[in-house]
């Protein structure tokens, strides 16, 4: 049987892309658009939405409604958002500080060892995220692997209280997402012509200067990709905050999860989701722009 392809090359290109486009539309664009629409609807009492248009969900982000229906500015949700963004930023920074040297080390190894090391980097991905989070409780928790020996040696008298706080969440975030920092950085480091490193070394640049002035600028695309991946996933992570943070500190992701489960306020959940999406999109956009600019200005 002969299949007739459309003559127009543009039509043909779109036809070729259509399976991917349809998949993306059904599984990504449509659900997000639906959430966007929901955020502008009044909530009903059973977790669904009623017909009509309402800005209640968006107002709720910034204001509390008093008994007499006057709006009072309320920063509680903004605080949660701010805390989540800060924690994600710190997690991203730590991931970069740890991940870059690891990637730089791996890329300098002979090819066979590189493959093994890269495999090791991805191993945590083979285990369930929940299990990995719980295993950190064994390490950081009261009488855990860190505290026990210290207590036994008499170096500390009391628990260090490492669990259930920002530090534990930070550790969880870095641990969970560091492969996503290492892999893109490694991929762009791998493409750097090592002759440039030698040339810089030859021209009186010491190790640090070589990394700062040659390696980092040249692998900037990898650094940007790694940072965005880790930041976005950290911001949306709800396992680390709820398990390692003990659920004491509400994060944006927990808040969203809460709206769709216990609170049954889908419009508010939708508004929060849209806000998170916008934060990530704008954040990434400006970060890329700023990095590009600084890469050219730095010279």
């Amino acid at each position: 049987m002969e299949i007739k392809l459309p003559a127009n090359p543009i039509t043909r290109r779109w036809l070729g892309l259509s399976p991917a486009l349809i998949t993306i539309f059904i599984f990504m664009v449509l659900p997000i658009a639906l959430l966007g629409v929901y955020s502008f609807k009044p909530a009903d009492s059973y977790g669904g939405v009623e017909a009509g248009f309402s800005l209640d969900a968006w107002i709720q982000l910034f204001f509390d409604r008093d008994l007499d229906d006057t709006l009072i500015f309320d920063s509680i949700y903004l605080q949660i958002i701010w805390r989540s963004v800060m924690l994600a930023a710190i997690g991203t920074t730590l991931s970069f500080l740890v991940g870059f040297p690891v990637a730089w080390y791996i890329v300098q190894q002979p090819p066979e060892r590189r493959d093994i090391l890269l495999l090791l980097v991805t191993i945590p991905f083979w285990t369930n995220l929940l299990i990995r989070a719980y295993s950190w409780i064994l390490i950081l928790g009261k009488n855990g692997m860190i505290e026990q020996p210290l207590l036994a040696m008499g170096l500390i008298d009391d628990s260090l209280e490492m669990m259930y706080g920002n530090m534990a969440i930070g550790v969880g975030l870095v641990y969970s997402y560091i492969p996503l920092m290492i892999l893109p950085i490694y991929a762009s480091l791998e493409k750097i012509d090592f002759g440039l490193v030698e040339a810089a070394h030859d021209l009186y640049a010491d190790r640090w200067a070589v990394i700062q002035r040659i390696v980092m600028p040249l692998c900037l695309p990898g650094i940007i990709a790694g940072c965005i991946l880790v930041f976005v996933l950290s911001l949306g992570d709800f396992i680390s905050p709820s398990i390692l943070g003990g659920g004491k500190k509400m994060m944006l992701s927990n808040l969203i999860q809460f709206q769709f489960s216990s609170a049954r306020n889908w419009p508010f959940g939708g508004a929060l989701t849209m806000l998170l999406l916008m934060l990530v999109a704008f954040g990434s956009y400006f970060y890329i722009k700023a990095s590009r600019k600084s890469a050219y200005l730095e010279k």
Partner: peptide, 24 residues
């Protein structure tokens, strides 16, 4: 180390830094 030797090299593949201007 190479950076401590008052000797410079012209490389076969030139190895000019692609992210810097000629003057840099």
């Amino acid at each position: 180390d190479p950076n401590d030797r008052p000797v410079n090299t012209v490389f076969q593949s030139y190895s000019l830094f692609p992210h810097m201007t000629i003057a840099e």
